[in-house]
């Protein structure tokens, strides 16, 4: 198989793009996918101070690497969620990567906040993935706003976005469908959030890491076995095998023609006010993380 751009020996085949690339041309291809996402959705300006949510996995490391390659002012925030089986490994990958790439890295340890997920899991009745996600969003948002960053970037890829979209469609969850997308603007006390890798599949970010020499962690979270999104990922991957390109068409068409229909139908304008304890925007008086803190102290 030959490289589509230069006819050298290809190392990555991408049926969904009707293309194959050698290593140098693959880096050009990946760069263009991210540049296109940033430009099409007005994600960043050269003046932005970008905080990248760095988990230590392939997507967040690929994102931090690419944004730095593109010349943006990038720092990382790693949240150590306090799961003994996986957190030290993930933290190690994040620290080694940022040291190697000279990217400033902040570490926020949930154990120091009294919110280590191994302890939280023993107390909550909700799915722990939901609680962990909510807690991480809280700290990424507050850290961004409190430390002079203009935007927080996450490594959500095309598989993440399409599986989430499919899950939302299967429930016809109009509230989530009305605001799913690669950019969430800064509003109502929330920081601007962007997903510059939304045009890249997991396979593509894995190839990017390999070719760029990025060593990433792949120890799965021990609590993630019951998560529902992997089921939708597998279904969509099977569909992609039969119809290459289906995932990006599904998501692009949703952004272009689907989302606005749900936005206009979603008339709920729930009041969002600062949390009575911490000031974080919430519709319930006391935000979820403050409620969690209170529960963990009891």
């Amino acid at each position: 198989m030959k490289c589509t751009r230069c006819s050298d020996q290809a190392v990555v085949a991408l049926p969904s793009h009707h293309a194959a690339f050698c290593a140098p041309c693959y880096l050009v291809f990946a760069r263009r996918l991210v540049e296109r996402a940033i430009k099409e959705h007005a994600m960043l300006t050269p003046e932005d101070r970008v905080l990248v949510a760095i988990s230590g996995g392939k997507d967040s490391l690929a994102l931090a690497w690419m944004l730095k390659e593109l010349g943006y002012d990038v720092s990382g925030l790693h949240i150590d969620v306090g799961i003994p089986e996986s957190s030290p490994i993930a933290r190690g990958y994040a620290e080694r990567f940022c040291t190697t790439q000279a990217i400033p890295l902040h570490i926020l340890d949930l154990q120091s906040q009294g919110l280590a997920m191994c302890e939280v899991k023993k107390r909550v009745k909700r799915p722990i993935c939901s609680v962990c996600g909510q807690t991480k969003r809280y700290f990424f948002n507050t850290f961004t706003l409190n430390n002079g960053y203009s935007v927080v970037a996450t490594g959500h890829n095309l598989d993440d976005e399409t599986s989430r979209l499919m899950a939302n469609v299967m429930r016809w969850d109009t509230a989530y469908l009305s605001d799913q997308g690669p950019v969430m603007p800064a509003e109502k006390g929330f920081a601007k959030k962007i997903k510059p890798l939304f045009r890249m599949t997991e396979f593509e970010t894995a190839n990017l890491c390999f070719i760029a020499g990025i060593d990433y962690g792949h120890a799965p979270c021990p609590y993630s076995a019951k998560a529902s999104f992997p089921v939708y990922k597998r279904l969509l991957a099977d569909l992609e095998d039969i119809q290459p390109g289906r995932k990006i068409h599904f998501y692009d068409a949703f952004l272009q023609r689907g989302r606005q229909g749900f936005a206009s139908a979603e008339t709920t304008d729930q009041a969002v006010d600062p949390c009575v304890h911490c000031g974080y925007p919430t519709s319930t008086g006391e935000c979820g993380v403050c409620r969690l803190r209170t529960m963990m102290k009891e």
Binding site: A10, V12, F203, N207, F210, A237
Partner: peptide, 15 residues
Amino acid sequence: KPGRALVIRAGQLLT
């Protein structure tokens, strides 16, 4: 299946 795993030989990706 292709597209779900990297295949590596002697430090090189294989199509």
